[in-house]
Amino acid sequence: MTALLSVEHLTMRFGGLVAIDDVSFSANDAEITAIIGPNGAGKTTVFNCLTGFYKPTVGRLHLAKGGEEWLLERMEGFRIARDAGVGRTFQNIRLFPKMTVLENLIVAQHNKLMRASGYTVRGLFGLGYKKAEYDAVDLARYWLEKIGLVDRADDDAESLPYGDQRRLEIARAMCTEPILLCLDEPAAGLNPRESAALNDLLLDIKKEQKIGLLLIEHDMSVVMRISDHIIVLDHGKKISDGDPEAVRNDPAVIRAYLGEEEDEDLPEIVAQDLGEIDARPKGGDPERPS
């Protein structure tokens, strides 16, 4: 089976700064792939390359499904969403705040509705557009039921609580009917209960829609519970790749990310340094000549 998404030798430089350095990985259909790593590891940059907000310096981003193939690094941002079917959410929520919840979900179906309205020309006279709009509302209602916001469909998106806004953004991305959904820290700022609800939503999307999910996450309770496959980045380099169990026990990961408190896993040289500092005499500065 070929992977849904394969990233090969992705490198992104901003002037002298290398944000991503030769990263390769792949993500499969109907699986949740998580990208984790400490702050500044380059996770969001990978997303921005995938969704066309940045043009990668080097590398190939290959998306394939049902015999069709797309090379994302050669496409404009909106085409990646429209033609290749890559949906995304943002780290800081980007809804349309003054539009209603339902309108947010209808705007997501823009291209489908645009065709149905004959690129506005036919729609102006109301020919054949009504049916398409009903279908669009039905799809929106399906997702509103999934995220439990049917009652608030006609309220402004900005009036929703934070957790609901997060889930609405996911629903909006799903309304574009993507084949790959990229989620940038979906659990950020959520309380444990909302976080659990999010897990259920993501697992449900995986099961029902059979699409690939790619997520960046800091919240380990989310990552370890739902991911099928984890990629760990640190300072722009991939340091580990595998299923959650393998990554959890990977010494490189523990060193970079999880294991800062566990002395016994530190490399010997570091442990020695730490030991020296502890053993240092308390009374004065050992460097100063007496």
Binding site: D83, F90, R94, P97, A173
Partner: peptide, 18 residues
């Protein structure tokens, strides 16, 4: 609706294929 959405957030519009 796309006009209004663009007024609200252009980056989000791009991510939706507009």
């Amino acid at each position: 609706r796309a006009w209004e959405a663009l007024r609200e957030d252009e980056i989000a519009c791009r991510s939706l294929g507009i």
